[in-house]
Nucleic acid binder design. Structure first.
Lengths: 224, 224
DNA sequence: GGCGCTAACTATCAAGCGATAAGCAAGACT
DNA sequence: AGTCTTGCTTATCGCTTGATAGTTAGCGCC
């Protein structure tokens, strides 16, 4: 090439502080999701089309930026209607549970959510645990309660939920979450029709788990 | 403290090249499993009780060290007897599948395996995919074959294994693998008696999945 | 259309980190 | 005991990277 082209150099654009901060936060989510929290501030700035020191005008340091990423991803991902949905006794339990997982999957099986969740887990954050406790207390308990009700087993008030029952529900949860891992962490293809898939997994769960639950409710727990 | 203590400085120990290399490799596995591949060579050396440049006498660069970590963790983790176990028609299919997953879990639910698997996935390595293809071809196909046989469904030769069948088995796999994620990535407690847990999960699977499989074999596949 | 506020940039520091070069010393062999 | 091999260390380079200081210029306002 004859033209050395000194620099493309986009014209300096001046945004309001709020707007720029949001832009940086969004960009940080996208960037750190992709490369992990070891990603460099210079590369993040480059992707945002700004200079690296500008980041430090909006965030005191890199850690603050990462905290913001957590906030962006973790907050506002919980839909309170999930609990209502699971409580709605007008519909059959089976239908409710399938509907819930269909909806839950839509919220959670995203690139950002799955990867941030993994990265923060590997980093030793306890945000994961806080979230998973929420899932356990708000969702698993409801699923188990409804299953017990449907199969004429004692209510959780009468007989506390056993470890095994929690584990079985966690197994369903895992099989759905793992779809996200396969897609967004391993980079594998998963079936196009995720809804049908979740319906199949949940159906298999609903067909298989009550038998185990019933068996465990009758037999005393065997110690290893 | 009155004693400034200039340096503990362990006496220089001279090992054979082979021995030292193995030591470094082992240490690298432990270190990179813990902190990820962004870990620093200096810190690794410190943990090994050697100086950092010594690493470069045994490995040309950090990447080679990481490759070695992959080798150490991925290789020799596959037990060919798993396939034999699943093929052993002297035992009931249910018993074989439970026995397999009990054994498989023992091999795979380790700190090193789980974390390296995640780190390499997040890094975009395709080693995961190679491994998972192996699992699919050697294990899932066998599980499905045996389940079909037990429930009077066509053999895979007569009717190819459907996507949904693979997905259901992948669901079982996920629910077991997720135990490792919970323990070694999220840092959560999991039940002590993992064997009983796996038995419960597999039983629920075996009770629930055939119904779905039978249904799908009879009904034509519904498109979304 | 000039002026001021401040968003954004240029330049740079200091610590961190992968990697290399040259010298030292532990153990083996005679 | 002397010496030779080579495992291991000290010293250091050069680039990277988070963070700071000082300068420039876009936009609103009168």
């Amino acid at each position: 090439m004859a033209t050395p082209k000194p620099k493309p150099k986009a014209p300096r654009r001046r945004l309001s502080a709020d707007e720029r901060e949001r832009l940086i936060a969004r960009g940080a989510v996208a960037y750190f999701c992709e490369v992990g929290f070891g990603g460099q501030t210079r590369e993040l700035a480059r992707r945002l089309g700004i200079t690296q020191p500008l980041l430090y005008r909006y965030f005191p340091n890199k850690e603050a930026l990462i905290d913001r990423v957590y906030q962006e991803v973790y907050l506002n991902r919980w839909d309170p209607r999930w609990e209502e949905l699971l409580d709605d006794h007008a519909r059959p339990a089976r239908e409710r549970i399938i509907a819930f997982y269909r909806d839950y999957a839509k919220a959670v099986l995203s690139y950002e959510w799955i990867r941030i969740f993994m990265f923060s887990g590997l980093r030793g954050m306890n945000l994961n645990n806080r979230y998973l406790t929420l899932v356990r207390d708000r969702i698993y308990t409801r699923v188990i309660r409804e299953l017990r009700l449907e199969h004429g087993l004692p209510t959780p008030a009468q007989l506390p939920i056993s470890e095994m029952e929690f584990e079985l529900v966690w197994g369903l949860h895992a099989s759905i979450f793992y779809l996200g891992i396969r897609k967004w962490i391993y980079g594998l293809e998963i079936p196009e029709n995720v809804e049908a898939l979740i319906e199949g997994l949940t159906t298999a769960f609903l067909d298989g788990v009550p038998a185990v639950m019933t068996r465990m409710a009758k037999k005393p727990r065997r110690r290893s």
